[in-house]
Design a protein around this nucleic acid. Structure first.
Lengths: 262, 262
DNA sequence: AAGTGGTCTAGACCACATA
DNA sequence: ATGTGGTCTAGACCACTTT
């Protein structure tokens, strides 16, 4: 259905008329609907290329997208196979508690318990790529999932976003969403460190658990498209309230494991 | 330096003469060595193509590799930038405690505490894609890191690998390595679920911690290149002994978060 | 032997960022 | 206006799996 003579696409935003995303989306639908069940073989690249009247390169980009999502696997010489059926979540849902919760049909809420400016610790300055001693905005926030206390968030916001965060109402639903809408500050990259630790007294009081009971901790730094760090956060979840999930293949391993803390 | 008229490469295994891996490796070295510091711009694609006398497509494949590793980021219209400097670990290190530990210069050990055949539970049959009631090999194993009890591993091996695992010595260092060498069974895909939970009495005794103290749990299924599940494992780490790390970008998010257990 | 994915080329148009 | 990355094409050789 492409009448243009060569190359070029990309209209509007999102998954508009980008050819390979169109093909990927169609295949994804077939997998999620069960038309292509787990273990099934995908059509060959040449098949798909002919069917969509696209070049093989474009088809390869489409299947590479699905492979990155962990939906399909491949080995040289053999047909591609369907590995799993679940849908992957979007990027925003990883960096944003609210986006994640709402994507799953839960109600997310949050309340600022304190917002104070103070000099960055050595680690905060390091994570946020700021000069030592720069004043950051330190925030303590309790997050609720369907009304239940679920997570305690301790975030250091870089100096250049501090004012925007201070201006938000105390019961702001999503800081990242508000920053995007209000100031055009959008997170493009994230790095996440996940471990377990016992609840401290403040954690225990806020999450309504016993001191020393297990918490799942996710520390993460979010950065703009230009690589500029926005926030460095220490989020602690009640045990049992959340599970992290990672897929990997021998060609691409996004996760790593480290000894000790750090 | 490529005198052949067109296409084709791939000699031997590994990163032999594959052009894009060669280019990626060179760039990776420059990043790790600090020649290209965090925040620096990469040369343009055309620069790299000329410098390596390769086509732009090949260069793009090289930088895509580094982007998948989380080392560099990109935005349309602007030069690529260096995001981080740390080296990523290999796939095997995620599925294998021993490979991971040794990659970091630590000594790994393990001891089978029990190996028994029994019918699979519903969940085990499901995770291993076996018919309900198929007999699996259930293994309890204590893992040591530099002599310290670090992790308790409870694994269900699929029926078709059970014999190979039973044949291993009780102090086998790495089951996955042994399976690869002895039987040619290699893991290509993995899915991992990460959460926190309190230590049970068996956990506490083996890991030498108090009952109820926090553990970091990693449940994972490993599968062959053909997508056939090999093992389904529940690994529990002492809090503080290990941290998981994930990078993401708005184009590729390998990690997801889930409500509740499951 | 045939089919399939993995790698590579050379050229093109477009959207976006920056100067 | 220029440069840069993002997308696309059409054809090629190779390594590997399967028949």
């Amino acid at each position: 259905m492409n009448t243009s003579t060569t190359g070029g696409t990309g209209t509007s935003t999102g998954t508009g008329t980008v050819r390979y995303l169109e093909i990927a989306e169609a295949l994804r639908r077939e997998i999620l609907s069960g038309e292509l069940p787990v273990g099934a073989h995908l059509p060959s690249e040449s098949d798909l290329a002919a069917r969509w009247s696209a070049s093989r390169g474009t088809v390869r980009q489409a299947v590479a997208t699905l492979a990155a999502e962990g939906l399909i696997g491949s080995r040289q010489g053999a047909r591609r196979i369907v590995l799993r059926r679940e849908r992957r979540h979007s990027f925003g849902e990883l960096n944003s508690f609210a986006q994640w919760a709402e994507g799953l049909g839960h109600r997310a809420a949050g309340r600022f318990l304190s917002r104070t400016r103070r000099p960055a610790t050595t680690e905060e300055a390091d994570r946020l790529a700021l000069a030592p001693g720069t004043r950051i905005l330190a925030v303590l926030r309790l997050r609720l999932l369907d009304g239940e206390p679920t997570m305690v968030e301790r975030t250091a916001y870089a100096d250049w976003v501090a004012a925007a965060v201070e201006a938000l109402p105390a019961d702001c639903r999503s800081v990242m969403d508000s920053l995007a809408e209000g100031s055009g500050i959008v997170a493009h990259y994230g790095e996440h460190l996940i471990d377990a630790l016992p609840a401290g007294s403040e954690d225990a009081r806020l999450l309504e658990v016993r001191r020393g009971s297990p918490l799942l901790r996710q520390r993460h730094v979010s950065a703009t498209a230009a690589g500029r760090p926005i926030e460095w956060s220490d989020d602690r979840y009640r045990a049992g309230s959340v599970t992290f999930s990672v897929s990997n293949s021998s060609v691409a391993t996004p996760l790593e494991r480290r000894v000790g803390d750090h």
